[in-house]
Design a protein around this nucleic acid. Structure first.
Lengths: 130, 130
DNA sequence: ATCCCTGCAAATTCTTTGCAAGTTT
DNA sequence: AAACTTGCAAAGAATTTGCAGGGAT
């Protein structure tokens, strides 16, 4: 099984790389149609699956059950996000909150494979607007 | 707008109350049909929405994008869960990892409204099985 | 009696799949 | 040339909606 470097895939990667926050399938689609107007959504779904398999992107589940994808920067640590309910802007968490209690979980014999954190609320600038 | 106490709703609440872990719509459905064989799934969807509005239950998003609902025990603090990838059993987190860094987030001016944490891995008993 | 809720069926929405034609290696 | 990928259309899956009849207050 070989992987091919198609025009479509290159555009998807480039869009994800340019973004500093995770993007949904629809967001990718809405950006890509300016460049490839005939692209099918199924092509995006299939490429996203391939990129996940290759571990080039990461899957995020946000609070409203929407799925987003983020390009994995090489040797970057993982990031968590805070989403503003008002402006929907996505902020980075300064550190991983799990680190603190990770050891106590491990002590219980649980081997952590994956974790996700979603935080929502009102960001500073939106709070000031009100 | 008034809320009615129907047989269907009572059964849904009772099922959720009895469960010590969040249940999906399908899990609720598969339990309830023994008692109410003619119930429609849409009835469960609609009642779950009502219970959410009344703040009687809480919505959890798990890692595979499935949605689960947990009955909110009065004056109980919120709980987070760890799910075993292997046996799918759901364990409680001993404490909320966010507590540690909550203050630094607040210091940034962000007002936290909600947060969710999903942790997956292999639990002790499954690890021993292998 | 009023108005909410239910079951059923149909409609939506999101995602996946089959396939013939087109691309990449 | 061989094998993978694409666009399109159709199929699936999950959830929502419309509606007439039934049930709760």
């Amino acid at each position: 099984m070989q992987v091919r470097n198609t025009k479509q895939k290159k555009h998807i990667i480039s869009i994800l790389k340019k973004s500093n926050r995770p993007l949904s399938i629809n967001e990718i689609y809405n950006k890509i149609i300016y460049e490839l107007p005939r692209i099918a959504k199924s092509t995006i779904y299939r490429n996203i699956d391939l990129l996940l398999e290759q571990n080039l992107i990461e899957k995020y589940y946000f609070n409203d059950n929407e799925i987003f994808y983020l390009y994995k920067e090489r040797d970057s640590d993982h990031t968590h996000f805070i989403i503003c309910d008002d402006c929907k802007k996505i902020y980075n968490l300064p550190s991983c909150p799990l680190r603190e209690i990770e050891n106590s979980i491990k002590a219980e014999g649980f081997i952590i494979k994956n974790h996700q954190i979603q935080i929502t609320g009102i960001c500073k600038s939106c709070a000031l607007k009100i």
